[in-house]
Design a protein around this nucleic acid. Structure first.
Lengths: 118, 118
DNA sequence: TCCTTAGTTCAAAAGTTATTGAACAATTGG
DNA sequence: CCAATTGTTCAATAACTTTTGAACTAAGGA
């Protein structure tokens, strides 16, 4: 770990809700949840926003305690802080992710108009 | 009913999360949940914010589909849209309210420094 | 060493949200 | 009718948030 993260008990409910109340960040969290255990780097999310803007949103998620970012080489490996979130706010993350999965209007990773060449 | 409300299927997850991501509105929702079934008027929330500001926050909650406001005489009777929220986002409201109840730092109705004379 | 890749930082611009007070409407009770 | 009560609207301002591009750092490979 390298960048500043709140401890589990510093995670604040209104801040988490506000941070999740953004379609881009919700898409990031949803994708992280779908790949749980697999640390992802920022480039996975480039179809959601520009590199600079992603850096901003990922910092918000990290500062809120929703994600953890670990510097490995020139990459940041990003994971969901599921255990901390579940401990602090039982059931919240699951219901948010389930609701997001059921919403066709939400942006999602790998759904962008610009499709990646294989 | 008098003021504009979204239908159940128009309720949007990111908007609901963003609206709940504010301590004043979270306090309102929490209090409504604790008095479920009892329609409350705005004056119940005057220890959270000014009348004007409450009007603003209550409009946000209503427009997001979190609450229902019915005009009765000169009052607005406000209720939680629990059934609609539970249908759209199962478990979300309960986990948010439970998390809010466990947070000592959140403002709450009837907790203000200025106590009401009996 | 030089180049590329991965991501951050900074400052500016644009957009949105929150808060305020003064003025307004509508209902109700005297 | 008059006054009080309840809440809204409006305009202004303050305070954030989001988005952008250009410049930057740091690691890794040729």
């Amino acid at each position: 770990m390298s960048l500043p993260h709140p401890t589990a008990d510093q995670i604040s409910l209104p801040i988490v809700l506000a941070v999740l109340g953004d379609p881009t960040r919700l898409a990031i969290v949803r994708y992280l949840a779908s790949k749980e255990g697999v640390p992802l780097n920022c480039s996975k999310f480039l179809d959601l926003a520009s590199k600079t803007n992603l850096s901003y949103h990922l910092a918000k998620l990290r500062e809120a305690g929703v994600t953890r970012s670990e510097a490995v080489g020139t990459s940041r490996l990003i994971t969901l802080r599921r255990d901390d979130l579940d401990k602090r706010f039982p059931g919240l993350l699951d219901s948010v992710i389930a609701a997001a999965d059921g919403d066709k209007d939400l942006p999602a990773v790998g759904t962008a108009e610009v499709e990646v060449s294989a």
